[in-house]
Amino acid sequence: MIEFWTILIIKTLVVFAVSMLIVAYSTWIERKVLGHVQLRYGPMRVGFHGLLQPIADGIKGFFKEELIPDNADKPVFLLAPIISIGAALSLLVVIPFGDSITIMGHKINLYLTDLDIGILFVLGISTIGSYGGMLGGWSSGNKYGVIGGLRASAQMISYELSMALAVISVVMVSGTLSLVGIVNNQAGLWNIIKQPLAFFIFIICGLAELNRTPFDMPEAEAELACGYNVEYSSMKFALFFMAEYCHMFVFSAMVTTLFLGGWHGPLLPGPVWFFIKTFAVIFFCVWERSTFPRYRYDQVMELGWKVLLPAGLLNILLTGLWLLVFNI
C-alpha cells in the first residue's frame, strides 16, 4: 500500500514538474520561432539565446501589482483563472507519456492513470477550462472582456462538436475509449493513415479550441484590446497564460496519442518518441500562427458549422461503412 502511494506521489510530482517546464518553455519556443520567421532572433539576452527568459517572466509576474477593477464581480473574478489553470492541469492526468518500465523491481507505468473513458475525460475537462475565460471576461466589468468571453464560449460550442466527431471515428477504429488502449492499437499503423480526414478536422478544431491564431477571436488584439483577460494583471494573468500553453501542450499530446502513434517508434525509447512528436505538433502550432491571418467572426462560425461538422459526420459514416464491409 505504501509502495503504491509513494510511486503515485513521485509520478504526480514528476509529471507536474515536467509539464510545467514544457509549458514555460513552449512560450520560449513560441517567441523564438515567431522571431526567426520574421528574420529576428527573439529573446537573446537572458541566458544563452534567452533560455532563462521564461523564468525571468515568471519572477516578473509574481512581483507585479494585483489590480481588481471596482465594478468587477470579485469572487468570480478571482475564481476564473483558477478554473482555467485547474482544468488545464487536470488534463495531464490521462496523458500516456510512454509504456511501462521497470525501476528497481517495480513496474512503473509512464502515465498517471489509464481511465477507461480517457478521451471523454479530456473532452469534458477541456470544455470546463473554457469556463475560465468566459467567466473571467464576464466578471471583469469591461466590455472588451465580455465580448471576448462570449466569443470564446460561442467558438467552443461550435468546435467542440466537430472535434468530438473526429474523436468518435478514431474510437470506432480503435474500439476503445482508453487513451492507452488507443495508443496500443496503433502499434502497427498510425491512425493518421487510417483517418486522415479526422486528423485534419481534429487539428483545425483543436486550434480553434486553443484560441490560436486563425481562430483567436476571444483575444483578437486589434479589435478587443486583449480579450477576456484584459483586466487581469500579475499572477492571475500569468495563470491564464499558463493555462493557455498547458492546453497547447495537452492538445499536442492528444494529437500524438490519437493520430501519431503515441510512444510507438523505432530505435528510441517510447517517451522520447512521445516528446519528439509532441514538440513537432507544438512547432506546427507556432508555425501556422506565424503564417495565417485571423478569420472574420462569421467565417469562423461558417467553417465550424457548414464545413467541419458535415465533414465529421461524413467521416463517421465512411468509417462505419468501412468497418461494416471489411468486418474488422
Binding site: 520561432v33 526567426h36 520567421v37 520574421q38 528574420l39 508555425w287 501556422e288 506565424s290 503564417t291 495565417f292
Partner: peptide
C-alpha cells in the same frame, strides 16, 4: 504561405 514562413525560419 506555410512554405514561405518555413523558408524564413
Amino acid at each position: 504561405g506555410m512554405s514561405y514562413t518555413l523558408k524564413n525560419f
